[in-house]
């Protein structure tokens, strides 16, 4: 469980929200804060495999997310229902150390947070 939970609910390249969420998480990690990232709704596309952001001359969110562990962010969660609704599952994701959360587990994650960041 984590003191700060960052909820990222938007797709990777349609707006700057996904990038902003990642920046917030990395900044918190740089200050050694206990932070978790939760991808839900359209946010699950951020972890979708086969991204090639160079085609639109952008940094690749999927690659950035896989760097989180090395930047000290160990807890990356994906809302399971958001995945299944899009016909995706764990194997559709480029991240291998994510934890899928059902509704109840997601509620519990949010309920214990001292601070929630919404993106």
């Amino acid at each position: 469980m984590s003191a700060i939970v960052c909820i990222s609910r938007h797709s990777p390249y349609g707006s700057s929200l996904a990038r902003d969420a990642l920046d917030a998480v990395l900044a918190a990690a740089a200050f050694e804060q206990d932070i978790a990232l939760l991808l839900m709704d359209e946010g699950v596309w951020q972890a979708y495999r086969h991204q090639q952001a160079s085609a639109i001359e952008q940094k690749e969110l999927g690659k950035n997310l896989s760097a989180l562990a090395v930047f000290g962010v160990e807890k990356v969660y994906v809302h399971e229902r958001s995945l299944t609704r899009r016909g995706l599952d764990r194997d559709s994701l480029s991240l291998n150390n994510v934890q899928l959360l059902n509704d109840e587990a997601t509620r519990a994650l949010l309920a214990q947070a001292r601070q929630v960041l919404s993106f």
């Binding site: 990395l26 740089a30 690749e60 690659k63 950035n64 760097a67 000290g72």
Partner: peptide, 9 residues
């Protein structure tokens, strides 16, 4: 990772 490393990373 498409990112430059911080000290810790």
């Amino acid at each position: 990772f498409d990112l430059s490393p911080t000290s810790r990373a």
